[in-house]
Design a protein around this nucleic acid. Structure first.
Lengths: 251, 251
DNA sequence: ACAATAGTGTCTGTTAGACAATATACG
DNA sequence: CGTATATTGTCTAACAGACACTATTGT
């Protein structure tokens, strides 16, 4: 039995990495930044950074999110003006995951509505939204500079984050985190379609979401930004879990 | 922008804490150990310890599990002889969670079949299975020595682990991790009843679990250890997700 | 015989999924 | 008018939940 003396613990660095997801042009996209230093210099990576000495893990993630995107995390209630959903994802601590030293990374998952453009330190070329299908595709010959594998174990972290998002919109109202404050049923349906990579029946979807109490509340207005008949505008309701859940179609 | 120099990171200690759950006498129970040192000396706590310098997080959790219970973790396939399910739960890093120094704890969740008795360093009085309802009950006057609040933030960690187990047996075959290698439908039902704290209809439950392909495979034998008509024995099948899920009854 | 548990069958209400039909905008 | 999207309605198969009934052991 080793003594529980906190002074002879092995030295660790603790970081937070962010899987920031959004839906752009009908595709699920993740925020990636270009690394300026070794290791993996020039490769794309998930945004992240060291946890400060007196900072909680969630606070560190929220700070990084603001630094990278300007988004405010909005955990307890639902996204207000410029808020994004933020939750802890998982922790990655393989001794060899960073060649420099022992780094344990507490990954977080953030879901945001479509945003104008990423800004990382003001450098436009050093951050971008990339479709997750491109980032996670294993070497398929389409190995241009945009599709090189992510640094460190970030492909695994991203895959875990995507899977969390895909499963969580089934039984929670989290899909609304991808939408602006006011949105139509069709826009919400296109979120589900993009995240799951499927096509859903608009009529059954409409009946399902409007029939689930507390999921959507009408905000009064209508919009015609999608063309066709004007659609009713909704806000996210108070319900956080969906019962019964949205069913993801089989493969 | 702080420089990404891994040599000027704040000093962290990284530990793993274990939420080990089992079902004993029709109640969901967790393994707790008595602390021998300050802080929280004499209080009950979740088992855990420091992650070693060249050890993966999952390996550290598996090592602690063996040290505390003698159980072998058995992640990929299903519990064989003496295997338990082990998965990462969440990470807790409040700067004030340990008064001695900055400690980040990567909590893991383990599910085990009913075991003879815990052994922690051979000391029988320093470890026990306690009903989670007792451990999580806020001060209700029943504040005897057995029910004093857990050390550190372990009550929160335990609550998160219990909630994870409760929700995960809905849509996965994980409930079989609480059962011995061979079990009856009735025994499996009593697991669900203990974990959820509800009473289920034996007839509908039987129809549901035997009708879900891949959940249970008959092992040929029968048993009468519960009294009454002999029951068919089953093993856990290959299916890991249940579709459609088991439905947890409403409150 | 009685108690206890295992297992099968039957009925009913709800819901998912397929799809017809109507409504209201823009061009 | 044609096209596009929104919204309502209808039908059917599957399933959850309630519960009657039979089967097989021990006492």
């Amino acid at each position: 039995m080793p003594p529980y003396d906190p002074s002879n613990f092995p030295p660790f660095a603790v970081t937070v990495d962010l899987v920031v997801l959004t839906v752009r042009r009908h595709a699920l996209c993740a925020l990636v930044v270009r690394r300026g230093e070794t290791p993996f210099q020039g490769r794309w990576a998930l945004p992240g950074g060291f946890v400060r000495a007196d900072e909680d893990l969630g606070s560190a993630a929220a700070r990084e999110l603001v630094e990278e995107t300007g988004l405010c995390a909005h955990d307890p209630a639902r996204p207000a003006a410029n808020g994004a959903h933020l939750e802890q994802l998982a922790t990655y601590g393989d001794p060899a995951r960073d060649p420099r030293m022992r780094v344990v990374s507490v990954a977080h998952l953030a879901l945001a509505p479509d945003l104008p453009a990423p800004r990382a330190g003001g450098d436009a070329n050093s951050a971008r939204w990339a479709p997750v299908d491109d980032l996670l595709r294993p070497g398929t010959g389409r190995e241009d500079e945009q599709a090189t594998p992510l640094a460190f174990d970030h492909a695994r972290i991203l895959a875990d984050g995507v899977e969390r998002a895909r499963s969580k919109i089934e039984y929670s109202s989290l899909a609304t985190a991808f939408c602006p404050p006011e949105f139509t049923v069709g826009e919400l349906r296109r979120v589900y379609e993009a995240v799951w990579g499927v096509v859903l029946d608009p009529r059954n979807f409409h009946r399902k979401v409007t029939g689930t109490p507390g999921f959507l509340v009408p905000s009064g207005g209508t919009t015609t930004r999608q063309g066709g008949r004007p659609a009713q505008l909704f806000r996210a309701g108070a319900a956080t879990v969906l019962n019964p859940p949205m069913l993801r179609p089989e493969v």
